[in-house]
């Protein structure tokens, strides 16, 4: 029997789910491998009680999300967290920097009947154990297919652990620090083929801090090029507000 798959969207911009629909060339093949039982974005129907694989996008920002995630973990054999919001809290977590209640007051004033049950935005990874991650903002369609395929075959997670700089070097890009610009490739998890840097824009750190990043050494690189730790940490906080990063 084909594995029953559900796709769940928490608080997000749906960009990663859009990237999932962007597998045009392989869409029909993938649909042949799985039993896609719930995907609110693409199909009518209710979330089933039983399923094998849960793909979760977005950050948990309500009590309902937290409860749902715990149920998902109990039900699904495999949980795949996709996108920065689900993996590190991503852009969604920036709201924590100013404070959720302050953000609420700024956007809605003091009126209290909307956005009920709100909690501080949290990544899926910080709420439940997940089996696979697909980092990035948005996810890369090919990487998603690769991870989904590994999940369906029961192979272990092989998300790269090195910083992006390694990949950037193999693409023969001129280092942004040489041009006087701040780039987060030195601390950010690899796996994106240095896409942004190759396109001429410094890394913004969307894939989260690389587990093997040498943060004290990165601090020296930042400082040697005129960016103090405060400036670097502020930039790093774009996608890592919820993560404890010590340079």
């Amino acid at each position: 029997m084909a594995p029953r798959v559900v796709v769940i969207g928490l608080a997000s911009d749906f960009g990663c789910q859009v990237q999932m629909t962007n597998i045009e060339d392989h869409l029909l093949e993938v649909l042949g491998l799985i039993d896609l039982t719930y995907w609110q974005l693409a199909s009518s129907g209710h979330m089933p009680d039983e399923y094998d694989v849960a793909i979760v996008e977005g950050a948990a920002t309500t009590q309902e999300h937290l409860d749902l995630l715990r149920r998902v973990r109990e039900t699904a054999g495999v949980v795949i967290a996709i996108g920065s919001c689900a993996v590190t809290g991503g852009i969604s977590a920036i709201a924590n920097a100013a404070g959720i209640e302050e953000g609420f007051a700024l956007v809605y004033g003091e009126r209290g009947r909307v956005a009920l049950g709100r909690v501080a935005p949290a990544s899926v990874v910080s709420v439940i154990d997940v089996d696979y991650i697909v980092p990035g903002c948005p996810i890369d369609t090919d990487e998603f297919l690769h991870v989904l395929s590994r999940a369906l075959h029961g192979l272990r997670d092989k998300t790269p652990r090195q910083p992006m700089c390694f990949a950037c070097k193999t693409r023969e890009n001129v280092c942004f620090f040489e041009k006087g610009q701040l780039c987060l490739g030195v601390v950010t998890r690899s796996g994106c083929h240095a896409r942004c840097v190759t396109l001429g824009r410094p890394c913004t750190g969307c894939r989260g801090i690389a587990p093997e990043a040498n943060l004290p050494a990165a601090r020296i690189v930042f400082e040697d090029h005129g960016f103090d730790a405060e400036r670097a940490l502020s930039y790093i906080s774009l996608y890592n507000t919820n993560e404890e990063v010590v340079l």
Binding site: S92, A98, I100, G103, F104, L106, R118
Partner: peptide, 21 residues
């Protein structure tokens, strides 16, 4: 759909981070 408070997120951030956010 939960609110994400973007208008509060950008306050205090650098101008060139705004389009990213």
């Amino acid at each position: 759909e939960p609110a994400r408070f973007f208008e509060s997120m950008v306050v205090g951030r650098r101008f060139d981070e705004v389009p990213l956010i």
